[in-house]
């Protein structure tokens, strides 16, 4: 099966690097860049939820940590050495940069923080939760409560986080002007490369011994424990990896879209990440990617013209896909082919 994976990978590279930039207008291409960021989050959710059974309803937190880390650095770079970012002067309560902003002036620190900060938070929370065998719905609720707390915290500290508005009007990206379409194209290529690279990594992970163990933990945690493994560690790896991917996605989202705000990372967007994964096929590698892109595309197209209709459609998707087709569209293809092992792999 190895050549098939390689062929699929090559096809993906051709589509993302060759076809899409050639056919799509600059505007469409930057939209696609945004969708691919959501797809990055979805790959992580597919790993944690589809393979590991960890329904994480708080990926927005990690997306936001990555996004804010990146945006803080870019804001500081935009403002120039020694100046405060524009919004801080606007709200006017500060005469000096808060201490926790200072390290983000260093580009290396900021870039590392976009991925490591979410992973550290996930590591701390995951260790505490999984070690005590808090799981299932309890874990889902806690992850959602984390998203709620994070948003309220960001909004409450308006003077240093930009509050409800978030961090906006980001102009430069490590010396490149983001208004220039050529540089927007570069950002798109970076995002596409990250997505392809991570897909290859996650595929390796899924097919490794660890990947088998993760599925085993999802399907029968107690048996895995009796076999001598520690399910807490297995789950922790998937959760931290998913958090890192969400953080990277958030960091790339900022130059692609030019804003990060609480509205993009709260309870509602966090659970919206999940629906794309469910539609595509939660336990597959590519399903989450395609599902996330399709949902994001449908949202942009529909919600502009018929905002009410989009919400009805979204609600109906949650109900119908998850109740009727828990394996997502990926399982539909298999059901139609009527293969003997066409039974849902993991309902």
């Amino acid at each position: 099966m190895k050549w098939r994976a390689a062929a699929g990978f090559a096809l993906g590279a051709v589509v993302l690097f060759g076809v899409a930039p050639a056919v799509l207008s600059d505007f469409r291409l930057s939209l696609l860049a945004k969708y691919l960021c959501f797809a990055l989050v979805a790959v992580g959710i597919g790993l944690a939820w589809g393979r590991g059974g960890l329904l994480t309803l708080g990926q927005g937190v990690f997306f936001g940590l990555g996004g804010y880390a990146m945006a803080m650095h870019l804001k500081l770079a935009d403002a120039g050495e020694g100046n405060l970012p524009d919004f801080m002067e606007l709200y006017g309560q500060l005469d000096a940069l808060p201490w926790w902003w200072r390290p983000f002036a260093n580009p290396v620190f900021a870039l590392a923080a976009t991925v490591l900060l979410p992973m550290l938070v996930a590591l701390a929370l995951g260790t505490l939760i999984f070690r005590r065998r808090v799981r299932g719905a309890y874990f889902a609720i806690l992850s959602q409560a984390l998203a709620a707390a994070m948003v309220i915290l960001l909004i409450g500290q308006q003077g240093t986080t930009g509050g409800t508005n978030g961090l906006t009007d980001i102009e430069g990206f490590f010396g490149y002007d983001l208004d220039d379409p050529v540089n927007q194209r570069m950002v798109y290529f970076i995002i596409a490369a990250c997505l392809l690279g991570l897909l290859a990594l996650v595929r390796q992970l899924m097919h490794s011994r660890y990947g088998e163990l993760l599925v085993a933990v999802r399907d029968s945690e107690e048996r895995v424990r009796f076999l001598g493994y520690n399910p807490a560690t297995v789950k922790l790896v998937a959760y931290v990896a998913a958090a890192g991917m969400a953080g990277l996605a958030g960091a790339l989202f900022v130059p692609a879209v030019g804003i990060i705000s609480p509205a993009l990372i709260g309870i509602v967007p966090s659970i919206e990440f999940v629906i794309g994964v469910a539609i595509g096929g939660r336990a597959t590698l590519l399903g989450p990617v395609l599902g996330a892109v399709a949902v994001a595309y449908a949202k942009t197209t529909l919600s502009e013209r018929f905002p009410g209709a989009w919400i009805y459609l979204q609600g109906a998707l949650f109900v119908i896909v998850i109740a009727v087709l828990p394996g997502g569209l990926a399982s539909l293809a298999r059901l139609l082919r009527r293969q003997p092992h066409g039974r849902l792999e993991h309902p």
């Binding site: 999940v274 919400i311 609600g315 109906a316 949650f318 109900v319 998850i322 109740a323």
Partner: peptide, 16 residues
């Protein structure tokens, strides 16, 4: 866990 997501969909429908 799937019930959680399905009822979230219902809650979206009811809100709208």
């Amino acid at each position: 866990l799937d019930t959680l997501l399905v009822t979230w969909g219902v809650s979206l429908l009811l809100q709208q």
